[in-house]
Design a protein around this nucleic acid. Structure first.
Length: 480
RNA sequence: GGUCCCAUCGUCUAGCCCGGUCUAGGACAUCGCCUUUUCACGGCGGUAACAGGGGUUCGAAUCCCCUUGGGACUACCA
């Protein structure tokens, strides 16, 4: 039996971080076990679903490298893969359920339902359907009214018995009888509802493993009932714990940057995103924390999910992204940087310059691709100095004016575009030997003179990357 | 309210299923030291957790129960 998994987003917005994680787990599992990964679009909520979001979500999944084998854009033999295009199928099975008296028509109006709910709640019961149409004696009347063209919702007759789920991550979950009342599977508009289409589709698409968020755990009982009514085989379920924000509540828009799109726009590395997301609720058997999806083929399993929710933490994502930058080869890095905005200076430089700059900055300085341009602008191209307290402090040392005087004359005598590492070292030697300055006053004095800052990468590598014209302007400002 | 789920350092987690090797390991963050004739990078080290209470057992982070706390669900949303 081939394993078939699916990711079934609703196109009601951008791809969410939590959705991306779920999709990733499905993808990884399908790859690890040699199965098929299906993308299904759950767009039965016509009001909120938008075709453009479907497109954007697929783009984001692709960006992350979470590639599906079947989906609306990759037809397979289980299509269509968009629920809005499967309406006849749902209608057919709904009719079957009605014929078997496992479901019934409900003509209640919204106001009636509202009143009933209020009444039941007041009496201390659960707000569940307990109305007139539940009684089988109205079946005939209902059929007649439907035949006459009247609209009605279709409600599923919830069996009054316990259900048990053996969830791969949660273990045995028992749903006591009376947990849910009869629920709607088809709206009066004729559109089917999530808990119902989900089951019909998973059955027809021969899904073997449902890996999804824990927020679906309570709903699963409804789905178990429908599987049973349909006489379908129940797939394996793996309910992964939720992603939460700093307030320990389910991660949502109000927690800030929660759509994948934002990270994509900010040039986060997709492999780093996947790496980090994967670790939120799953652990590598050897506790390895930096890896690519391809390395997971042999080790990814459903047994290593943790059961408690995981907090989404930007700090660690930043670190993971930095680690991926560090291990990425320079050529690739250069391509990524070249695609960034405001890189005219960078793109004009020689291959040697680019390589040296990337090599210098990728180790420890850059956590994000955008850091490269930021660092280049701040450390290499910035002409106008900011008189920070740290800089003022260094300028107040009595050795500093001598250093500025010396370097100023050296710099102004030069006519090349860049200076070399050898020249840089020569100046250091001179200041140290001839002027008798060493240690902190030496390094900080020279750094401040040349860069106007009190920190940064190794001078002997940084300065040969800085245009001499920029250095001249900085030095003249200090001299003045 | 009801039902279900969850509970190890601030955070992500290993260990839990198959009790002893756990004076609880790793990672992020944080702090300190070393190195770098400077800051950073790097290296080394520190602070920091089994929610509480009962049981079972010679022995419990690991098994059971209760309490507390948190979360999810409870729609003609998904």
């Amino acid at each position: 039996m081939t394993v078939r998994v699916r990711f079934a987003p609703s196109p009601t917005g951008y791809l969410h971080i939590g959705g991306a994680r779920t999709a990733l787990y499905n993808y990884l599992y399908s790859k690890a076990i040699g199965g098929t990964f299906v993308l299904r679009i759950e767009d039965t909520d016509l009001e909120r679903s938008k075709a453009e979001y479907e497109k954007l979500q697929i783009e984001d999944l692709q960006w992350l490298g979470i590639i599906h084998d079947e989906g609306p854009d990759k037809p397979g033999k289980f299509g269509p893969y968009r629920q809005s295009e499967r309406l006849e199928i749902y209608a057919k099975y709904a009719q079957e359920l009605i014929d078997k008296d496992l479901a019934y028509y409900d003509f209640s109006t919204e106001a009636e339902l509202e009143a009933m709910k209020a009444k039941v709640t007041e009496e201390g019961g659960d707000p569940r359907y307990d109305g007139k149409w539940k009684d089988p004696k109205f079946n005939a009347e209902a059929k007649a009214r439907i035949a006459a063209g009247e609209k009605a919702a279709i409600r599923f007759r919830a069996p009054e018995k316990d259900y048990t789920l053996n969830d791969i991550v949660k273990g045995k979950v028992v749903y006591p009888k009376d947990m849910v009342g009869d629920f709607v599977i088809v709206r009066s508009t004729g559109l089917p509802v999530y808990n119902y289409c989900c089951v019909v589709d998973d059955m027809l698409m021969e899904i073997t493993h449902v890996i999804r968020g824990e927020d679906h755990l309570s709903n699963t009982v409804r789905q178990l009932m429908i599987y049973e009514a349909l006489g379908a085989k129940v797939p394996e379920f793996a309910h992964v714990s939720l992603l939460i924000g700093a307030d320990r509540q389910k991660l949502s828009k109000r927690h800030g940057a929660t759509s994948v799109n934002l990270y994509r726009n900010e040039n986060y590395l997709p492999e780093a995103m996947c790496n980090y997301l994967c670790l939120l609720g799953w652990s590598h058997p050897t506790e390895k924390d930096i890896f690519d999806k391809s390395e997971l083929k042999d080790v990814f399993s459903l047994e290593r999910f943790s059961t408690s929710p995981a907090m989404y933490d930007l700090e660690k994502l930043k670190w993971v992204n930095g680690q991926h930058i560090k291990k990425m080869d320079n050529a690739h890095l250069i391509t990524l940087i070249a695609a960034l905005p405001e890189t005219t200076f960078f793109n004009k430089q020689t291959p040697e310059w680019k390589n040296a700059a990337v090599e210098l900055l990728k180790n420890g300085h850059a956590h994000f691709i955008s850091d490269f341009t930021r660092l280049i602008n701040d450390m290499i191209l910035k002409e106008n100095l900011e008189m920070t307290d740290a800089l003022k402090d260094i300028l107040s040392w009595d050795t500093t004016p001598k250093i500025i005087e010396y370097i100023s004359s050296q710099v102004n005598a030069m006519t090349t575009e860049f200076m070399t590492e050898v020249q840089m070292n020569g100046w250091m030697e001179h200041v140290k030997k001839e002027m008798g300055v060493k240690g902190k006053p030496l390094f900080m004095g020279v750094r401040a003179t040349l860069t106007g800052q009190d920190h940064g990468p190794d001078l002997k590598f940084l300065i040969p990357l800085t245009p001499l014209s920029v250095i001249k302007k900085r030095v003249s400002q200090l001299k003045a």
